[in-house]
Design a protein around this nucleic acid. Structure first.
Lengths: 151, 151
DNA sequence: ATCTGATTGCAACAGAGTTGCATGTGCAAC
DNA sequence: GTTGCACATGCAACTCTGTTGCAATCAGAT
């Protein structure tokens, strides 16, 4: 699932230095985590993931500030989802798609970015100008579906 | 700007009754306000507008619950914007279908429900179950586009 | 090894939204 | 027109997400 090899860590360190910021352990850990996770993560999820990892927990506020610095340096993306929480992801994963699709699990609330083909733009009323488009799917993710079946 | 004639109030009352809810003063006021305002309003803005109107202020929590009831009845739309606050607008039409499209104007914040052709469901990872799908378009609506051109 | 400004951790705060509960009221039945 | 009662309201207290102030610490340059 999450790649924790030293190459990811070295990669994260290099990227952080490249934007002129200090490669602190906190930043490296967070960026490596984001880089190894295909979907957008909420602050809460990141905090939990870090606490479970070998290096131990990170302060709530520090994590917010680390995320801020990564976002302002362009290494991470931040978007508000429909439940009013920010989700963070490593930059290169989403920046390519002007129009991309999200799957949101109604059970656990997680959001998955899908590599969906851009759907054809529907007919707009005259005079409307389209700038962005996103396809939002909702349902149940694999884990929640199987958990329901199993348990 | 906001139409305060009795016809709007009567209209709001009728719509609320039509969905099987009680036409209380709070609901009627809020729905009439939303119906007479072209853009999405934040809870805070609605509260202020109501306080300034002749009928006096409304309790914060009551307003949240009124908005909830309007949304669940399909008379209003609620979406989280980029600054993590909900914006509410009158629904143009009650469309209870599983897959529909919204157009949101980045300029005035209004939301339009489009009669979009059913978009092809993209390939989901194995184990995922799809329940709803919505296509969200953003750009500029006709009025804002022409207003910009005209002056 | 030392220095220094950036970074961290703690505590306290802020704003949006929610919940519990006692009181009040729309509206349908009488 | 009255009445009953389920639903709606108002208040207080709460949760959750994110921010700010400040003293202590540390990364990286010298």
């Amino acid at each position: 699932m999450i790649k924790r090899g030293s190459s990811t860590v070295a990669d994260a360190t290099a990227k952080i230095r490249a934007i002129g910021q200090r490669a602190t352990p906190a930043r490296v850990r967070v960026l490596a985590l984001l880089g190894g996770t295909p979907r957008g993560l909420a602050h809460q999820e990141i905090e939990t993931a870090l606490a479970r990892s070998g290096e131990g927990p990170m302060d709530r506020v520090t994590l917010y500030r680390v995320l801020d610095s990564l976002v302002s340096g362009g290494l991470a993306l931040r978007q508000a989802d429909e439940s009013r929480i920010f989700r963070f992801s490593a930059a290169q994963q989403t920046e390519a798609h002007a129009a991309h699709a999200h799957f949101r699990c109604d059970e656990c609330g997680r959001v998955f970015c899908l590599a969906a083909p851009p759907p054809p733009a529907p007919a707009l009323p005259a005079g409307f100008r389209l700038s962005r488009m996103s396809l939002d799917l909702r349902g149940e993710c694999r884990e929640c579906t199987s958990r329901r079946r199993t348990g």
